[in-house]
């Protein structure tokens, strides 16, 4: 079987086939002899090329969370789901920044109105979650185009809250 997993920005090609009681796996072309035994739900005992490890593999849709040696690795099947990470929060697409809720929470303040000119770093919306306030700001100088939320509104992670048109040379 062939798999394509995306880990962060990197794509990995993986193949696996049964071999005796174990598996022969290649990761980006490198071959490994893998013996994997399920020990309890989600948990495996892995012996790869003679090196033993305690592994957890949890599948959530097309995403797999794998923990090996205390390190957590998130693998998305074939290119991922396009979830918004922390870095993407400041992403500007075609001159427009969509400000999204970084986590589920409540809009506690809308600090700019539609049509307002804003500087880079100017707070547009403040979201509160778990007793902490998180100001969300403009990625560059520009104009607030749309506000999609109201103060006091509960929002989900990744929900668009506002749009800012960023100046072309900002």
């Amino acid at each position: 079987m062939e798999y394509e997993f995306q880990e962060g920005e990197v794509k990995h090609a993986v193949t696996a086939e049964r071999r005796g009681n174990g598996f022969r796996v290649t990761v980006d072309g490198r071959a490994m002899e893998v013996d994997l035994v399920a020990v309890e739900p989600g948990c495996y005992s892995l012996v790869a090329d003679g090196e033993a490890a305690d592994v957890v593999v949890v599948r959530d849709g097309s995403r797999r969370y794998v923990v090996v040696g205390g390190y957590s690795v998130i693998l998305d099947e074939g290119g991922g789901e396009g979830r918004v990470g922390a870095a993407a929060l400041e992403e500007v697409v075609a001159g427009v920044q969509t400000i999204r809720a970084p986590m589920p929470g409540k809009v506690v303040k809308i600090a700019a109105a539609e049509g307002d000119a804003v500087d880079k770093g100017r707070t547009v919306v403040v979201v509160e979650a778990m007793k902490m306030e998180h100001p969300l700001s403009a990625a560059g100088p520009g104009v607030v185009k749309r506000i999609y939320c109201e103060e006091g509104q509960n929002v989900d992670a990744d929900q668009p809250l506002a749009e800012v048109e960023i100046e072309a040379n900002g």
């Binding site: 798999y3 880990e7 993986v14 990761v27 490890a53 794998v66 923990v67 390190y71 690795v73």
Partner: peptide, 29 residues
């Protein structure tokens, strides 16, 4: 930032693929 050593990424990928295959019905050789 969290930096996962390459060796663990490799093992994670191998384990994910093997777990996937293990879930499929085993064939008799």
């Amino acid at each position: 930032r969290e930096e996962v050593p390459e060796v663990f990424v490799e093992k994670a990928l191998a384990a994910a693929a093997a777990a996937e295959l293990a879930a499929a019905p085993a064939k008799f050789y």
